[in-house]
């Protein structure tokens, strides 16, 4: 059974609801274009169509994703503008290749989704640690370690909430689990942990991955608030790592700079 199956998935139906709203809104905007601005808009839309079309085909940034939505309206309106000219019969057209499937999280939102998933993974991992503590699998657990686990878990939950709020406000499904390329391996490692040092080393690695992921995210996100969210979470993950190093008995600040070699990239997300 998946470790995530215990947790609610409140965003499970969010995509369909929001898609319907978006569709209604886009339809309403298209109607407004026809009714109020259609005639003078045609010339400008003809000029804009090529640029917007390029944006729609390249959803590499968050801004381009939203331009893409606007572009879809504009392209629809532009097609209507060409109503004065006879459209070519469908049968005579060269068969078009099917459009690529749309990504659930385009542009910046993919990295935001990776971050939400990574935080969910951390929460689930610490939940599992607490379960192991409760069953005695780890032996005697010092009070400071138990406090660390509970506090770090709460902070990761807060981080997940911040990222999920960003997804929700962008009209995207929130993530209540951890669809990442590393999840299965990480949970297997945790399942094999039999002692407090084992668990601390596992958690240290996960915190380091998170810190490096956010360090890298500051370079591959384009939205200012998303960048700042990463910038204000990353130091907290490094603080967790410092305390874990201390607990393990390693020097607590081993590196002069936070690297990015173990950072998760946007393609770590196991969601199309």
């Amino acid at each position: 059974m998946s470790i995530f199956s215990r947790r609610a998935k409140p965003g499970g139906d969010a995509a369909m609801v929001i898609s319907e709203r978006e569709l209604s809104e886009l339809t309403r905007q298209l109607d407004e274009l026809h009714e109020s601005t259609f005639p003078p808009l045609c010339k400008g839309l003809d000029e804009l169509t090529a640029n917007l079309g390029a944006v729609v085909r390249q959803p590499s940034t968050r801004r381009s994703f939203f331009l893409g939505a606007a572009g879809a309206v504009a392209l629809g309106a532009a097609a209507a503008c060409s109503g004065g000219q006879p459209a070519a019969p469908a049968a005579s057209r060269t068969p078009a290749s099917p459009p690529p499937p749309q990504e659930t999280y385009p542009g910046d939102l993919k990295m935001v989704a990776v971050a939400a998933a990574l935080e969910n993974l951390a929460v689930s991992a610490y939940e599992e640690v607490l379960r192991k503590v409760g069953t005695g699998e780890l032996g005697a657990v010092p009070p400071a370690v138990a406090t660390f686990v509970q506090t770090a878990m709460k902070q990761h939950s807060d981080h997940a909430q911040a990222w999920n709020t960003a997804l929700s406000r962008a009209g995207k499904p929130i993530l209540s689990d951890a669809p990442l390329s590393i999840t299965q391996q990480q949970m297997a490692l945790l399942a094999a942990a039999r002692s407090v040092p084992d668990v601390a080393k596992f958690a240290l690695n996960l915190e380091n991955v998170a810190a490096q992921t956010y360090t890298a995210a500051t370079t591959n996100l384009s939205d200012h608030t998303a960048i700042m969210t990463a910038a204000t979470i990353q130091p907290v993950e490094t603080m967790h790592a410092a305390i874990l190093n201390f607990i393990i008995g390693e020097y607590p600040i081993p590196d002069t700079f936070i690297g990015i070699s173990t950072a998760l990239k946007p393609d770590s997300l196991a969601v199309r």
Binding site: T218, P235, V236, T238, M239, I243, I258
Partner: peptide, 24 residues
């Protein structure tokens, strides 16, 4: 620039580690 963002983030994380140990 992205390069400078990474530099500042990279160092912010290390200062935070110093702070965490000092607080402890």
């Amino acid at each position: 620039t992205a390069e400078l963002r990474q530099l500042f983030a990279s160092v912010a994380g290390v200062e935070s580690m110093h702070k965490a140990i000092l607080l402890t």
